[in-house]
């Protein structure tokens, strides 16, 4: 970092802040007496809540066992008529054993217009938040870089219910690494910009399908 010159805007702004607050009293301490979660500690109910909240924001939710997963993925892609599937590194090979669609890899990294031409993208996730109906991607294994889940119009996301579901936002943050780029997704792209009326489907994937496995 270069040392800014005296009289630079940096020094001026910092000096103005110091002058502005020098006589101010120390504000009261932050009490974190709000809830860590608004839900009882019951994994089955948490899963139901996650499914309900995802669906409430127009994500399509599927639930299955690990053994059923390849067939479920195959059926979803077939019903949608997808011919190409973007598969980031780290997606388990057996997830794909129930489909014959053409797989597209991000090696070398695909240009945006190539991503735009892909029918669907399949990923895992870092975790899911039940209270808000949110899935979190952090570019970890099986998720790929951020553009992969943004440009294609259909995002299929697999959540492992055994270890990837938390109840609330306060429970989610400590499990996430701030140095990684993150995308929190709560339902498909939407807008309320016309008459404050919520409409799904603008720039991100217009269809979000979430498979809860376990």
């Amino acid at each position: 970092m270069t040392v800014p010159a005296k009289g630079s805007s940096r020094e001026r702004i910092l000096a103005r802040i110091r002058a502005a607050v020098q006589d101010a009293a120390e504000p009261p301490p932050v009490l974190r007496d709000y809830r860590d979660s608004h839900q009882p500690d019951d994994p089955a109910r948490l899963l139901d809540l996650l499914a309900a909240n995802l669906a409430d924001y127009r994500a399509v939710v599927h639930r299955c066992t690990g053994a059923e997963l390849p067939a479920v993925i195959g059926r979803i892609l077939a019903e949608r008529g997808s011919r190409t599937l973007l598969v980031p590194d780290g997606v388990p090979e057996d997830w794909l054993s129930g489909t014959a669609v053409e797989r597209v890899r991000d090696h070398p990294p695909l240009a945006p217009d190539r991503l735009d031409a892909v029918d669907s993208v399949l990923t895992g996730c870092a975790l899911a938040v039940a209270e808000t109906g949110t899935i979190v991607l952090d570019a970890g294994p099986g998720q790929g870089r951020r553009a992969l889940t943004l440009v294609p119009d259909h995002h299929l996301c697999v959540v492992r219910t055994a270890d990837q579901v938390v109840a609330s936002v306060p429970q989610a943050l400590p499990r996430l690494d701030p140095s990684r780029p993150q995308t929190w997704i709560s339902g498909p792209s939407a807008t309320s910009d016309i008459e404050l009326d919520r409409v799904e489907g603008v720039h991100g994937p217009r269809t979000l399908e979430v498979v809860l496995v376990g």
């Binding site: 808000t132 109906g133 936002v169 780029p181 792209s189």
Partner: peptide, 24 residues
């Protein structure tokens, strides 16, 4: 989100820290 769009959570929230190799 609850105060602005009255949602439990808004559809997309992006977090980034400086730059990341090969992403963004």
């Amino acid at each position: 989100p609850r105060s602005s769009t009255a949602e439990r959570m808004n559809p997309y929230t992006s977090f980034w820290t400086g730059t990341s190799d090969g992403d963004g």
